[in-house]
Design a protein around this nucleic acid. Sequence first.
RNA 1: GGAGGGAUGGCUGAGUGGUCGAAAGCACCGGUCUUGAAAACCGGCAUGGGUUAGUAGCCCAUCCAGGGUUCGAAUCCCUGUCCCUCCGCCA
Length: 424
Amino acid sequence: MLDPKLLRNQPDDVATLLAHKNYQLDVIDFKNLEKKRKKIQIDTETLQAERNAKSKQFGRMKAAQEDTAQLKKTLDVMSQQLKQAESELDMLKKIIENKELDIPNIPHKSTPIGKNETDNHIIKHWGTPHAFDFDIQDHVALGKLYGLDFEAGSKLSGARFTVMRGGIATLHRALTQFMLNLQIKQGYEECYTPYLVHENALKNTGQLPKFEIDLFKIQTNNETQAHYLIPTAEVPLTNLAANKILDLAQLPIKLTAHTPCFRSEAGSYGRDTRGMIRQHQFDKIELVQITHPDESFSALEEMLCHAENVLKALNLPYRVAALCSGDLGFSAAKTYDLEVWLPGQQKYREIASISNCTDFQSRRMQTRFKNMTGKIELVHTLNGSGLAVGRTLVAILENYQTNEGHIHIPTALQPYCNGLTILK
RNA sequence: GGAGGGAUGGCUGAGUGGUCGAAAGCACCGGUCUUGAAAACCGGCAUGGGUUAGUAGCCCAUCCAGGGUUCGAAUCCCUGUCCCUCCGCCA
């Protein structure tokens, strides 16, 4: 959520910034609602103050055994008026709050302005795509040889589900362990969290109320409150700090977790239907940092390095994109994407996304800290992949293939593979 | 699944209808004392919102959440959530 004061005091400036994110803020509507709110709130609070004063007087008179009949009459009337005023105010506040929950974070000034992914800035390349002197295969053809079973996945659960067996399953598991260990070494605390969360957790990180369609919702018969499958571990990890006032000394908090992620992929029909690039369920190592507001942009650079180090250790060529304003996610002020080279597609494909959400999430979930002067301030939250496991597996299959259709296992993963060095 | 107990400020914990935003202790901050520190003593110390030029003042709200009773609710009633203890079941 944006700072309501900023929205109130400089709605036109905010609208301009949001336009860069392809979001149109209805300034006139907003100003009108605010004007109404202000009037009703002042009226209501004045009435409340009067009621409070008279009620106290009532108590005093009662204690002194004076006659309170006249005063009670006045208070009866006031009480009725108040009920109406309060409910009117509540309704208006709800309307405004619901609108505010739909407004995305504003892009940071270092985020390049642009319409869509074609305007992203490629800021760096690492490694060179391997030149193969034979006809290469894509991960679908290669994976099938070693236990990647798309048919079994769709038989069990439909499109966009995959079963992994044998060598592929080992490689996938080795990747998660390798990545987790690396992130722990880079200073993150390893966590295991629930994969089902309440609506509120998703509201805090910005997936709800706007993007419910992207989520899997679980509703059992005897439950009053639904659960949602997490679309990313960003949700449980970031929410660990919800409703807390942290000590300055606790910052930054650095967390990592290996979890499955569940996404309905509504609106991406027909995209990436082949292979395991876009699945309803995939594993990811997530990184989260909770930082002092002054430190968040340096933390973003640091997290980018932490993600890059995974690809470097696996010797996979990649590039880094600074997302333009129009391609930014809902909660992000600035985002870097890591794109790995996929020989099978002759393309760089997103394998990690690292974002600074500034105070957008912390305001929603009330995560604050006491600064040096004892004043309470909102923290900044960041999240990033370290990395998406399924897509890394795809990259390894395609980048490490041989003429015979074998797969070399990267040295960094071999300690986790029970002596396996090659899939053949 | 059955039976009971509970949820109060950063923490512990008192408070069963009015003057309670809330005792006390701990923690924290400032001061006195001290060569310095500790101890002791004195003082300060909840959050959100509104108004405002204001991190001044004033006002409103908040004692798990949502409803209700009442002129008035931390306190009484209803519903929900979460936690704890015992029994049952269970990886």
